[in-house]
Design a protein around this nucleic acid. Structure first.
Length: 553
RNA sequence: UGGGGAGUCGCCAAGUGGUAAGGCACUGGGUUUUGAUCCCAGCAUUCGUAGGUUCGAUCCCUACCUCCCCAGCCA
């Protein structure tokens, strides 16, 4: 696949040209295991792994696990699984920031010795007050000038667990007057007695992100440390720390920031995603309406479609909104070429062919893919009574409608042309069944089929052979393009999930989890990987087909 | 209003002193037993605004406007 150029690729190519890294390209995807990966992470994964792949480099998967309060093994496992599912391989390069806790500790003693870090004993509130504001400089802590000996003693005792949580912190000694708040003596270690999913209870002090991330990158010999825009003004701190440590770690990666993905009609915030799950507004992290990778997977998204999406939206520093339609379209594009075609009647309406012999049954042949004859065809049995889609009949057709209507003719796909001769209603006026006559000379595949052309072409299933199947019709979770900017619960789409019992081809009963199909004229569906039981498939609608008629209405 | 960023077609996004790529969407037309797919064509005299430099500016300079991020012992 060829790639559009973007500013990060330009940087990499320039670096290679001037031999900045000896031709190495080493990136990393650094998730915090405190939630499930979502489509926004997919953009970053594709970027980092894609870059490494294209420039014959390496991409690490590194868990940024420095806050045990929120991180769990469950999240680690799901992240591993999702990255793999997306199609990327980290090989030997699976790392955890917690792997570096010893080094990180050692480096901070070094900083103390260099007079570049000190133990502060202010309370959290006091630190906040002394930090100043966006427009006012901060003030030095009274503990800022403690001696190296005292700092070392205190810091070692912090590590040994002699102090209560929050009693002291280790701070980098930079400048309380910096216009960049991140440089106003940032906290780099805090005391926190939490069980860590990997290091257990070994530590009661944990390093902060800014301190940990740059060092982890350096220790792993990362060349290009790619992150999102909000870390732009953390870059001076990233560089400051590595500069102080240059005699201990020689690698100094370049941090590059890009705009995170924003998608309409959904939310990307971890907080809201968590709330949706915890408040049972969705069925779980893998609810097919969730923008999580596990959710998209259940919905029917393929890894290819997501990678195509990442490629299509590009990478830049301009924060922008991508329309959900772009994602949906990538899925259509991928499923169109890979999904076998089948028939399902979602909202059945009984149709009786009056002049079709009671005992007659005929085989009709339907190709498994209209553009791939090599995929073969299957038999669709036709009988006197069939089901068609309620939508394919209108008693009083509107202008431009060319499906069935009283007196109108339409082709039963892969079978005959029929003409509607009667409409039968029940006592309450609802249409119960419709009656047609067929033209025996028009069977698909015979020479007679070419004689008469009709514009309408509708799908159907023999009432005798059609099977019942559970189909879940999913739609966008939110009805507002920007649900996050307001009370998102007020904009949940009440029609985002509808479970129906539909008629399906009998062969579909044997379909396996994660098999994809196009139900002709209805959309793309996947067999649910969770709720499907042998012989009892559950279908999830991944996305509808494009519908220029529906759009016109 | 301190600091850091961004503004190129409806939505993304290349280009960066030589006269605006591409994708998606959209609009026509063709093919088609999916109102699908596919194909073909059209779609920014203009690059946030105003000045300036230049033979020539989206690109350089100046000023301005708009939007985003930052005051966690979160990442």
């Amino acid at each position: 696949m060829s790639h559009a150029s973007n500013f990060i690729r330009n940087i990499v190519e320039e670096d290679n040209r001037i031999n900045r890294w000896g031709g190495r390209v080493e990136t990393r995807f650094p998730p915090e295991p405190n939630g499930y990966l979502h489509i926004g992470h997919a953009k970053s994964i594709c970027l980092n792994f894609g870059l490494a792949h294209d420039y014959k480099g390496i991409c690490h998967l590194r868990f940024d696990d420095t806050n045990p309060e929120k991180e769990t093994q469950e999240y680690v496992d799901s992240i591993l699984d999702s990255v793999k599912w997306l199609g990327f391989d980290w090989g030997e390069h699976l790392h955890y920031s917690s792997d570096y806790f010893d080094k990180l500790y050692e480096f901070s003693e070094y900083l103390i010795n260099q007079g570049k870090a000190y133990v502060d004993s202010l309370t959290i509130e006091e630190i906040r007050e002394q930090r100043g504001t966006l427009t006012k400089v901060g003030h030095n802590s009274p503990y800022r000038e403690r001696s190296v000996t005292e700092n070392l003693d205190l810091f070692r005792r912090m590590k040994l667990g002699e102090f209560a949580d929050g009693r002291h912190v280790l701070r980098a000694k930079i400048s309380m007057a910096s216009p960049n708040i991140n440089l106003r003596d940032p906290v780099i270690y805090r005391i926190r007695r939490n069980h860590h999913h990997r290091t257990g209870d070994k530590w009661c002090i944990y390093p902060m992100y800014d301190y940990t991330h740059c060092i982890s990158d350096a220790l792993e010999n990362i060349t290009h440390s790619i992150c999102t825009l909000e870390f732009e003004d953390h870059r001076p701190l990233y560089d400051w720390i590595l500069t102080q440590l240059k005699t201990l770690v020689s690698c100094h990666p370049q941090q590059i920031e890009f705009a995170r993905l924003k998608l309409t009609y959904t939310v990307m915030s971890k907080r809201i995603l968590l709330e949706l799950v915890e408040n049972k507004l969705v069925a779980g992290w893998d609810d097919p309406r969730m923008p999580t990778l596990v959710g998209l997977r259940r919905r029917g998204y393929t890894p290819e479609s997501i990678r195509m999406f990442a490629e299509r939206i590009g990478v830049s520093k301009a924060d922008s909104w991508i329309d959900m339609g772009v994602l949906e379209d990538c899925l259509r594009e991928n499923l169109n070429v890979r999904a076998q075609r089948r028939i399902a009647v979602l909202r059945p309406l009984k149709l009786i062919i009056d002049n079709y012999p009671d005992s007659l049954e005929e085989e009709c042949f339907a190709p498994n893919h209209p553009q791939k004859p090599e995929w073969g065809r299957r038999i669709l049995p036709l009988s006197k009574t069939i089901y068609i889609e309620r939508e394919d009949f209108m008693e009083e057709p509107v202008k431009g409608y060319y499906r069935l209507a009283p007196g109108a003719e339409v082709r039963l796909r892969y079978a005959y042309i029929v003409k509607c001769v009667n409409v039968v209603k029940n006592s309450s006026g609802k249409i119960k069944e419709i009656h047609c006559t067929y033209d025996p000379d028009t069977k698909s595949g015979t020479s007679g089929a070419k004689i008469r052309k009709v514009k309408g072409n509708i799908h159907w299933l023999s009432s005798k052979y059609a099977q019942k199947g559970e189909i879940r019709l999913y739609d966008r979770l939110f009805s507002h393009p920007h649900p996050e900017s307001r009370d998102y619960t007020a904009h949940l789409n009440p029609h985002s999930k509808k479970t129906i019992s539909a008629f399906i081809e009998s062969s579909l009963k044997k379909a396996q989890p994660e098999e994809y199909f196009q139900f002709e004229r209805n959309g793309y569906f996947v067999i649910d990987r969770k709720d499907t039981k042998p012989g009892r498939p559950v279908f999830n609608r991944a996305v509808t087909l494009k519908d220029s008629w529906g759009k016109r209405k």
